[in-house]
Lab assay of single mutants.
Amino acid sequence: TTYYDVLGVKPNATQEELKKAYRKLALKYHPDKNPNEGEKFKQISQAYEVLSDAKKRELYDKGGE
């Protein structure tokens, strides 16, 4: 599973699309609303952290993490 899959976006997604997808999923899986989905929330946050940063995203796209 790639970070793009976690957020449900395509690899060519814009920053705005990433932000929108992250917010939607973060609300859905937030531990306050969904106590059993803490791990999913962490995955979503990690994916967004990497993909929202241009340098980290470039490194990730080249095969790094």
Rank of each mutant, 00 (worst) to 15 (best):
E39D: 13
Q43L: 13
Q46T: 11
D53L: 02
P35G: 10
D53F: 02
L59Q: 15
L59C: 11
G8I: 02
K40N: 08
K56N: 05
E65Y: 15
D5A: 08
P35F: 08
D53W: 02
P31E: 07
Y29A: 03
K55G: 14
N34W: 08
T14D: 06
E65S: 14
K56W: 08
P11A: 09
Y48N: 02
K33N: 14
Y22K: 01
K19E: 15
Y3E: 01
P35I: 07
V50L: 05
L25P: 00
L18I: 15
K33A: 12
L25R: 03
V9Y: 00
L27Y: 11
D32Q: 09
Q15L: 15
K33D: 07
N36S: 11
Y48G: 01
Y4V: 01
E58W: 06
V9R: 01
A21H: 04
K20N: 15
Y48Q: 00
H30Y: 05
E65L: 15
D32G: 08
G64T: 13
L25M: 09
E58M: 07
R23C: 14
A54E: 13
P11R: 10
T2D: 09
K40I: 12
Q43E: 13
S45N: 11
T1H: 11
A54F: 08
R57D: 03
Y29F: 07
P31Q: 08
K33S: 10
A13Q: 01
A26E: 12
K24A: 14
A13Y: 02
D61N: 04
L59S: 10
L18E: 00
G63V: 10
E65K: 04
Y60E: 03
P31H: 06
L7V: 02
E37H: 11
L18P: 00
D5C: 07
L51Q: 00
R23H: 13
A21G: 03
N34Y: 11
P35R: 05
D5G: 06
R23I: 15
D61T: 03
A26S: 12
Q46Y: 08
A26I: 14
S52N: 05
Q46F: 07
D32F: 12
E58D: 09
T14S: 14
N12Q: 08
V50A: 05
Y3H: 07
L51Y: 00
Q46A: 12
S52C: 07
A54N: 07
A13L: 02
L25K: 04
Y3V: 02
A26Q: 10
K24W: 09
D53N: 06
I44Q: 01
K62C: 09
E39S: 09
G8Q: 07
P11E: 07
V6S: 04
K56I: 05
S45V: 13
D32H: 09
N34I: 05
A26M: 15
L25F: 04
K62E: 07
Q15T: 13
N34H: 13
K19Q: 09
N36V: 07
G38D: 08
F41H: 04
R23E: 15
A47H: 01
T14H: 04
V50F: 06
G38S: 15
L7E: 00
T1S: 11
G63H: 14
